[in-house]
Design a protein around this nucleic acid. Structure first.
Lengths: 192, 192, 192, 192
DNA sequence: GATGAATGAGCATTCATTCAT
DNA sequence: AATGAATGAATGCTCATTCAT
């Protein structure tokens, strides 16, 4: 993107660009660290993995929750995107939801509305709204039912090792008698 | 020199008479603290709530796992007791299991086999064995199914406030189409 | 020793005998524990190895120093015994001294008069007196010289693993040009 | 709301200007504390004496060994510097070695390779290499001999009070028949 | 006298958070 | 706006010492 030439000066104005890059690096790092160690992982580990000073982390994110929200926001956005067409299919969207459940401990925790989270509720509500839109009128399940079902599936995958989660998630949906599409992420444009 | 009555200094060693009482107090305190804060709560908080020195905690329980096991063992024993008769009824036993799920975050954590826990696996296996015994031959569910269902219900109640858990647990079982008896503990004799 | 008969009563008077046995067990245990872990080993470990309550340890020995002295007293007594004849031979006695140096970290520490020890000085002086008696008038070395030499040899063996100590001690004496007899303990009668 | 001047609360973060100063203060404090109490002295005492938070100590030195190495490295560097010329004189270098032996309990401990210490072995080897270089071919002593002699002298000074150590060290070398130059440090340039 | 439990001070270590540069 | 160091509260754990039984 930036022309590789000009090793000279150009002192200022990089700030803006560096800031954005750091923010993204922090989110990426946090996603990885939270996935591996859970939502209570040391924030210093996140900063280290992002290659960024501790202070910068706090400049971008006021507290652990803000950082976690930023991480989860990306997951939720993918779910929203999966339902972003005229007649969204519930099974399809649940496939995306489940894909994230099997990848991210943090996402699991969020959907179980772990304790405190004001932020978590907001994100969780966005998921609910998406699912609501997928329910044709007269469906045997309500949005509450589906949200509960999602929480239940997250309970099924919360403990075991990553390798087992996919199998367990599918077994859980089967036990619920709810059809689910193929487990997959929904690539959005902002990864470019 | 100084008279034997010293209101200052050490709070007085009350001798070994209190040993059993302390042990019980520690388990009670741990049950409460773990229920509120989860299995990673500070052990110092447990000792404080039990009104006992830190050293006494470590004398009675070698490590966090030993303490957690002592707490959870009581829950599991009640479940075992509930099934301890000629023809145990699955719905009944699930009622006891669910009762504990709605009371104790720690019990929820245990059944999701969070992390490494050797002890957790042992306790979890005891629950599985109990449930296995309740399944008449030819039942539509396997023991694995039921354990998965229990994990799913624990996912349903893990996040929300205690007041909501009972309602959610019942809704979860209904969604699974599995009948569950009244939610209740199973009082054992050792409380005397 | 005690007649194996009479399983009945005989309530008291055992106290005296048990006390002596405990004291001996504590010294033996302390010798082993101090030899393995050094003079700062936990006293609880000594009591445990002796099969005795912590309280009993403190009844017999007011503090760590008293216990250490009791352990070392036995070593010093052997050295005194080795010189307990008309014309004691310096090399012989140094052999006994060196034998203890190679076996006991505690003994090494004592002869280097580690820090505090009032007790250590007393024991150390007894060794000096023994060595003094072994020096024929007109010997090229003074008692101070020999004590210094002993401290130097203890420095040579203090760090390395037990297996190396014998070799190093002999090399040290050779470097000093002082003749030393065979390394051996001096069995006394009180082991019966 | 509150004016930026708050005499209460945090003692104020003085920014990274003090980083180097803190590191140096820690080494100085550690040198003193280790010299007085040995290498097992509480690290909290070091931090306190340095006027630095516990966290800062751990930021600069990962563990006790790293701190000890930093302290001892300076001693060893002086010894190396003393031998850093065409034809180093053994007696001279031993004078520097002995000077450090009489000042620092920690240095004494290091040369006796107490316990496991990976780091201690490294430093000790550096001393050996220096001494090796001072031995003209055909000298009556090998490097092993001289290292043993150094360990022996350290045994002579390890116990007694600082005031006595110089006298005892000289007496020890005399007893060994090894010539030693004046006891003195070797000032290096980095004190500036 | 023996016993074993109670106690809490002490030490190592981690980590969230602040702040001068 | 980034940086990285400083800080100390918090926590786990150990162990010397006391004391009722």
């Amino acid at each position: 993107m930036t022309p590789p030439t000009e090793p000279q000066g150009r002192p200022a104005n990089q700030g803006r660009r560096v800031a954005a890059r750091n923010r993204a690096a922090l989110i990426t790092a946090a996603r990885e660290v939270f996935a591996e160690q859970g939502l209570t992982a040391p924030l210093s580990a996140v900063a280290r993995r992002a290659g960024v000073g501790q202070g910068s982390l706090y400049r971008h994110f006021a507290d652990r929750d803000a950082l976690a929200s930023a991480v989860l926001d990306e997951n939720v956005r993918q779910i929203e995107a999966a339902a972003d067409r005229p007649d969204p299919d519930l099974a399809d969207v649940l496939g995306v939801v489940t894909w994230h459940l099997t990848r991210s401990t943090a996402f699991v925790d969020m959907l179980r509305v772990r304790g405190d989270g004001e932020q978590a509720r907001v994100l969780s509500d966005r998921v609910r709204r998406v699912l609501d839109r997928c329910l044709p009128p007269g469906h045997r399940l309500t949005a509450d039912d589906v949200m509960l079902a999602v929480a239940m599936v997250s309970g099924a995958v919360a403990g075991p090792a990553p390798a087992e989660r996919e199998r367990l998630a599918l077994a859980a949906w089967r036990l619920l008698g709810i059809e689910v599409g193929p487990l997959r992420p929904h690539e959005t444009a902002d990864d470019a």
